[in-house]
Design a protein around this nucleic acid. Sequence first.
DNA 1: TTGTATGCGTTATCAC
DNA 2: GTGATAACGCATACAA
Lengths: 350, 350
Amino acid sequence: MPTVPDPQVTPLRAPTIKDVAERAGVGFKTVSRVLNDEPNVRPETRDKVLDAVAALGYRRNSIASSIRRRDQRTSSIGLIVDDLANPFFGSLTRVVQEYAQARDHLVLIGSSDGSPERESELVGEFGARRVDGLIIVPNGDDQSYLEPERARGVPVVFVDRPGARIEADSVVSENADGVAAAVRHLAAAGHTRIAYLGDYETIYTFTERLRGFRTAMAEIGGADPRHIRTGLHTSAAAHEAVLDIFGAAPRPTALIASNNRITVGAVHALQHLGLRDRTAFIAFDDVELADLLRPALTVIAQDTTAIGTEAARSLFERLRDPAAPYRGARVPVRLVPRSSGEITPPESSL
Amino acid sequence: MPTVPDPQVTPLRAPTIKDVAERAGVGFKTVSRVLNDEPNVRPETRDKVLDAVAALGYRRNSIASSIRRRDQRTSSIGLIVDDLANPFFGSLTRVVQEYAQARDHLVLIGSSDGSPERESELVGEFGARRVDGLIIVPNGDDQSYLEPERARGVPVVFVDRPGARIEADSVVSENADGVAAAVRHLAAAGHTRIAYLGDYETIYTFTERLRGFRTAMAEIGGADPRHIRTGLHTSAAAHEAVLDIFGAAPRPTALIASNNRITVGAVHALQHLGLRDRTAFIAFDDVELADLLRPALTVIAQDTTAIGTEAARSLFERLRDPAAPYRGARVPVRLVPRSSGEITPPESSL
DNA sequence: TTGTATGCGTTATCAC
DNA sequence: GTGATAACGCATACAA
């Protein structure tokens, strides 16, 4: 019985520069020269090499190349976000990837799902792949696990929230300003009883947004503690909170939701209560069909393009100049009036 | 004057297993054994090594390790989608990444933006990184550029649309069935004049959706050619098309939009015409706040989780068994009645 | 239980 | 111009 070669034992091998060299009838260093556009190769020889490359379907092994290369660069960066399915992080990823691609860098992606452990594990994986830099949406309050990267000179940029216990560049939105602007927008229309729905207070962005709320409310006599709910991490929780707040007196005339999960629950609840057309509503984060709602949704929109671009720009700049001072960029948010935020308080409440 | 060491000339070097070995006072092979959980290391020695690893902030260089490894595996896969900012591809990416992460694989990501050239370039980059497999949302009608990967035994899975000129597994939605179901849903409520808005006919998904429309319309006497528009690639174009179609007699009583960009333009146009509450409307692809619209949006929802999981599953299965026959998976879509699709035709039109 | 020699595919150095 | 040869950081085979 003839022996059949087991594909597991003799695995398919990719052609190497040596294979190319042999086929082209040159030394393998010459192939390397051609592939790296180095000088001192006769056009004639060059063509022979290129022909062999095409014939063999050769693809450079850039992992082998980066191990030997002087600068140890891999032309890749790592990006860690909370959840890719969240449109905010989706478009952030999009922008970063585009920026990197334009500079011939590849992007390794990971989702932390809010877990500091997973975040640190991913950094380990990326570090093992020797990424040239990292862009991270940090969780928890300790990013000191990045020490090996810092020591190796791998730059890190924190985005959406600042990192802790390690020096690095960061890019965040003007969260507090945004909510404060929303409050002032409502106050200008005559609202004083403004409710606020927040997510976990442990997360930087929500701490900041709540701070903006309190600051601006202080200007019109302070917020009613009964109208502030935090720790709402699902739309169901937000739904409950709205039923609760609006079921008791004094009923607020306006409502601010601090993210899109909360927005969904809150609008549903207002609808359920028949208050959707009578309660002013402003949401943090823009959503796809906001202007098709009735009333169309007034939002505080983050500039995801600017955030992503700035993060990527910071990273590549530091790759060029590791000695520059660290920068903490703050990206403005924008209040987009569409209708829901321009509903005036009922006469009776004045 | 003392010479300052130029960081460019003496770059920061990551610690290697030799550094670890020296510090631990053992041979470097022993370090390798510890790091790879190989047997035959005294617990005592093991601890010494681990201490040195921690002290030096050592991170394995897995790119160096994969080049020498017998199976040549890099524990990474490449994913190429159209546009990460599109929620459909965002959640697809999310699912794939999650599946890969659970199997200790990293995901390299790229956006083709519908360009076949960029798609092929990205494959080249991924190939150079020696990814273990590829998941691709293909563009154009020729994926034969994947030949080097096929020859090397790197599996490819096409998702959302089938690839051409190369054999591979694929995972697509039941596009035609979905639109046909929408037509029948509308027909059951008494509609016969149903309009259809399509994107470029060159893209597989839209060819299929249009086919489903024609098939089901044939069952109720055929579609009116004046009520079919294709090649609509922006919401503005969709807006125009609706104004056009609904501005002339006979006016349709129902409308199907073949993707979310078109949906936005179409709903705006219906609103503009004051027909939003009187025209039945079904959209392909679910959107975030669909149920907050009034009327709430009836949609044909793709099961992005199932699509992504199936694609990832196919890839990892083939990684295990390269000899299995190729499979073309079809994932069912689901008609989600919410309101807009249940509007009945006006009496006068019967 | 531990260490040495060798090789992976590439880039760097230097001689021809 | 071109090609030997060394080196990168690690895994493999095999010796001790």
